[in-house]
Computed example of a mutant assay.
Amino acid sequence: MRTNVKLTVGVVATMLAGLVSAQDVQVVKIGHVAPMSGPQAHFGKDNENGARMAVDDLNTQNIVLAGKKIKFELVPEDDASDPKQGTAAAQKLCDAKVSGVVGHLNSGTTIPASKIYHECGVPMITGAATNPDLTKPGYKEIFRIIANDNALGAGLAFYAADALKLKKVAVIDDRTAYGQGVAEVFRETAKKKGIEIVDQQFTNDKATDFMAILTAIKSKKPDAIFFGGMDAQAGPMLRQMEQLGMGNMKFFGGDGLCTTEITKLVGGAKTISNVVCAEGGSSIQKMPGGTAWKNRYDTKFPKQYQIYSPYTYDATMLLADAMKRADSWDPKVYAPKLIESSYKGVTTNIQFEPTGELKNAAITLYVYKDNKKFPLN
C-alpha cells in the first residue's frame, strides 16, 4: 500500500513540475502588418513569410528573459494597403499588447500608423516603407532598415543622366505617399542633372488603364518614363506602352515595381527589357547572409520571394536582439536599446542614425533580361 502511495505522490510531483514549467513560459507577441489582400498581396505574403521565418528561428534558441523561457508568436494583420485599415490594424496590435511590430509595407499606411505606435509606446521597424517623411516626426519607437526614397529616386536620376545620357523624361505617379515621394525626388534630381521633365501625369494605385496618359506622354517624345508606384500598375502600363508603339522608351521606377511578379504582370510585353528599377539595400547575392538565407526561404516558401522578406526577417530578429540586451520584452524597457543596435543581419550590419534611419544605406539598380531580374551594381 505504501509503495502505491509513493508512486501516486511521485506522479503528482511530476504533474506539478510540468505545470510550473508551463507557467514559466512567457509568450511574446510580435505584430506584422502588410497588405494580405488586394493587388499587393504578393508583397504582403512575402513580408509575412520573412517575419514568420524569424519567429521560427528564434523559437529554436531557447531564449530566456527575466528568468522566463520565451516563446515568440507572430500576430499578423492585413492593412490592404489602405491608410484607414492600416491605422485600425496598428490600434488592434496595441490593444493586443504586442511587444513590437514589423511593418508596414506601404508608406501611405506606415506613416499614419507610426503615430499610433508612438502613442502606445510600441516599437515598429519597417523594411519596406521608404518615404522620408516617416522618420521626420522623430518618434523614438519608429525605425527603418532600408534606404529611403531620397536614395532611390536620386540614384535612378543619376543613372538616367550619367550612364544613359537621357535628355527628356516624363513622370507619372500614383498619388500615394510612396509614389509621390519617390517621383518627386527623381524629378528634382533629374532637373538638377540637366534632364528636361517634358510631362507629369497622375494615376492611382487601383488603376489598370493608362492609355490616355500614355498617349499624352507619347506626343511629348520623351526618352523615358519614370513611374512612382507599384508593380500592379507598372505591369499593365508596360503592356500598354508596347501597344502604343512606345517600345523604345526606358522605364524607371523604385522598389515598388522592382519585383519578380512584374515579369508576369507585363503579360509577355517586350517593354520589360526597358525597365531600370532601384531597391534599397544590396542584391540578395551581396547581402552578408543573403544566399544561404534565400535557399532556406525558397525551401520553406517556394516561388513566393519578392523583395522585402530578408528585411522583415532582420526586423523581427532585431526586436528580439534588443530584448535580449535589455533582458526584457517590455517595450518601455527594451525600446531604448534599439537605437544602440549593431546587429549583424542577413541584409547588412544594422546600425541607426539618431532619427531611426539606417546608417550607410545602400541601393541596387536592376534590369530585366529574358524575363529575369539582374543587378546592375
Rank of each mutant, 00 (worst) to 15 (best):
V9K: 15
G10L: 15
A17G: 15
S21P: 03
H42K: 07
D56W: 06
D56T: 11
D57G: 02
T60C: 04
N62K: 02
I70W: 12
F72E: 01
D78H: 00
D78F: 02
G86C: 06
D95R: 10
S114V: 02
I125V: 05
T135P: 01
R144I: 00
F158P: 11
A161S: 08
V169W: 04
R175A: 07
T176W: 13
Y178R: 04
G179R: 00
E184Y: 11
R187T: 08
I195S: 07
Q200F: 13
T208A: 14
F210W: 09
A212E: 15
I213F: 03
K218M: 04
K221F: 12
A224I: 01
I225N: 07
M241G: 10
L257C: 13
T263S: 10
A269E: 01
V276Y: 02
E279G: 08
W293G: 02
D298M: 00
T299S: 11
P302S: 00
Q306H: 03
I307W: 03
T312L: 07
K332G: 06
V333M: 02
A335S: 15
K344G: 09
I350G: 12
Q351S: 14
F352N: 04
A361Q: 12
A362H: 13
Y368C: 11
K373F: 09
P375Y: 06
